[in-house]
Design a protein around this nucleic acid. Structure first.
Length: 540
RNA sequence: GCCCCGGUAGCUCAGCAGGAUAGAGCAACUGCCUUCUAAGCAGUAGGUCACACGUUCGAAUCGUGUCCGGGGUACCA
């Protein structure tokens, strides 16, 4: 908000001086000795004007004295122009936060629609810790977009028709047969987890021992059981989907055949060795990719293209795909496929996150996919609250590997970083309760001019920064940045709390100002924590 | 080989649309609860921001190259 004022000021200055020049920036200062913001304008103009940067900066400062009520200017070596924001400005923002409450920072509403696809794990087994990261990431990204005014569809896409599911059914039959005392060879790369044994047992109990391997129940019942489990797990961490899309529909509604026809007709594909190839090499890829195997089975690419084409056709303004790092090389093929179909793609945003390793007793727990020695998300939820799980999964940026330290997560003490934010909120709640008990609720007119200590102003400045920070978070879709911001808010609050006594019957004006500052901090914490899907406890 | 991510304090990581003295949590050490919640605060110690070169008034941040770790590179998803 304030940056906007400064930008306008500089732009106007340049227009006034008839300078056609836009190579300058305004940055927020970490060290406040130089004001809250600085611009490199003079440093950049130096070459252009063939004058020393400091001289230019000093001139600008001199010429602009008294031009704004919001800030004053100063120049410093080697040529920065510093903007010192008046306390008055921040007092206005405080009023605004209190007035607008949880709507503070929201821009004008728009009617855009977004689709966020995440998890999308095939129902071949329980969700692992790795899926948990994606579930939380996708959910919070959806929350961020909702905050920004989007109407968001959370979508889970899965493959109910391919090879994986066939192998799953075969695995289940093999287990079933074994329970019936028959000797059936186990499928190659079959699923060996104990959850399959349980499902096979259930089938045996339900249907008896006379089923044939081709009976549909091995596929349908197994898929259903596992999928129900997956949804239960997701519900436990507060993740709910609006739409489940199944791959099978793109076979039955003919869209896959249509794509193949279109590609063949437009010379985008060819047949070689009994397989259908996508001419990806014509578009800068290293080699062509197979769309349909010689067995007649499509690879994942083809239905994925059909699915994404369908999403594009559904008319979203923004499509977000959240994938694990193992998809890094595959989604460009899908995008390329869409482009070949003449579909819009520039509104598709792909978020790739790195993997999760689980740390227990200081050691990394190795997880392998099919071998059934993974830690399930459910096991994690058994031990930890959703708040802790959510916080731990977004403690790191999506692009960083995530070490999930189970011992730290389980730690119920001040060591656990997840409590820091919630504690600030709880502290405020309690303080406000005490305040009305001891001070009453009588209204005092105030301009907040009693807020002038470092701790108070620092907290107020951080709170004022919320709209700009959300702006960045919406465009980056990086939940970690929201957590970082809230940590700054909490730290500033805890510091203020430690140094300034709020409730003081001898000084009602100062008490009121500080109480309102606390209320504003609580509002910001509550907005932020809600977006993260973390609860805001009244006490801890 | 090629492509994508990462390499910042003892450990785990922020910071990275270039900006002034590089931050947090954990671990270590020292203080602070008869006063609004100590799940907190204050302080000490800890760094050649992997390395080299380059661009720039200015580089943890941008470029090139090297090294190390992870992922991908399938007629698996």
């Amino acid at each position: 908000m304030i940056q906007h004022h400064i930008n306008t000021f500089i732009a106007n200055y340049l227009i006034e001086k008839k300078l056609d020049f836009d190579d300058w920036t305004v940055s927020q200062n970490t060290k406040k000795d130089f004001g809250e913001f600085s611009s490199n304008l003079a440093l950049k103009l130096a070459k252009h004007l063939k004058k020393s940067p400091l001289e230019i900066a000093e001139n600008i400062v001199k010429e602009s004295a008294g031009i704004s009520e919001i800030f004053t200017l100063s120049a410093s070596a080697p040529g920065f122009i510093n903007f010192h924001i008046s306390n008055q400005y921040y007092y206005t923002v405080l009023k605004k936060i209190l007035k607008e409450g949880e709507n503070f920072g929201k821009k004008r509403t728009h009617n855009k629609k977004a689709n966020v696809e995440f998890v999308s794990s095939n129902p071949t087994g329980p969700l692992t810790v790795g899926h948990g990261r994606q579930a939380i990431l996708g959910d919070i990204i959806s929350n961020i977009l909702t905050w920004d005014g989007y109407s968001v569809t959370r979508e889970y896409y899965y493959n109910d028709a391919g090879k994986q599911m066939r192998v799953l059914a075969e695995s289940c039959y093999a287990k079933y047969a074994a329970l019936c005392g028959e000797n059936v060879s186990f499928p190659e790369n079959g699923y060996v987890g104990s959850y399959i044994d349980k499902i096979a047992q259930k089938i045996l109990d339900l249907k008896g021992a006379s089923l044939k391997p081709e009976d549909k129940i091995f596929r349908e019942f197994t898929e259903n059981e596992i999928f129900t489990d997956i949804q239960n797990t997701l519900n436990r961490i507060g993740v709910k989907f609006d739409v489940f899309s199944k791959e099978g529909q793109f076979y039955s509604n003919g869209s896959i055949d249509k794509i193949l026809e279109f590609f063949a007709k437009n010379n985008l594909s060819y047949v070689k060795d009994g397989a259908v190839w996508f001419k990806t090499s014509h578009y800068g890829k290293e080699e062509d990719k197979v769309l349909v195997k010689s067995t007649g089975e499509p690879t994942y690419r083809l239905p994925d293209i059909a699915y994404h084409a369908d999403k594009v056709d559904r008319g979203f303004d923004l499509i977000v795909d959240v994938f694990g790092a193992d998809h890094i090389d595959t989604y460009p093929d899908v995008i390329l496929g869409l482009e070949c179909l003449n579909k819009k793609t520039d509104h598709i945003k792909v978020i790739i996150h790195q993997f999760v390793t689980l740390k227990k007793g200081g050691e990394i727990v190795k997880m392998s996919t099919r071998k059934a020695n993974f830690v399930t998300l459910d096991e994690l939820v058994d031990d930890l609250s959703p708040d802790i799980i959510r916080y731990f999964f977004i403690m790191r940026g999506a692009n960083s590997h995530l070490d999930f330290d189970l011992d730290l997560a389980k730690d119920d003490s001040e060591k656990n970083p997840a409590y820091y934010l919630q504690y600030a909120h709880a502290r405020i709640s309690n303080l406000l309760k005490r305040y009305s008990q001891e001070m009453g609720d009588n209204k005092v007119d105030t301009n907040y001019e009693n807020l002038k200590s470092q701790d108070e102003l620092n907290l107020l400045k951080i709170l004022s920064d919320f709209p700009d920070r959300m702006n960045d978070i919406v465009s980056s879709l990086e939940p970690r940045r929201l957590a970082t911001y809230l940590e700054e808010v909490a730290a500033a609050y805890h510091k203020f709390y430690g140094n300034q006594k709020v409730i003081n019957p001898a000084d009602i004006k100062t008490s009121t100002d500080r109480k309102d500052l606390c209320r504003a901090a609580q509002i910001i914490l509550k907005i932020g924590l809600s977006i993260l899907g973390i609860s805001c406890p009244e006490r801890m």
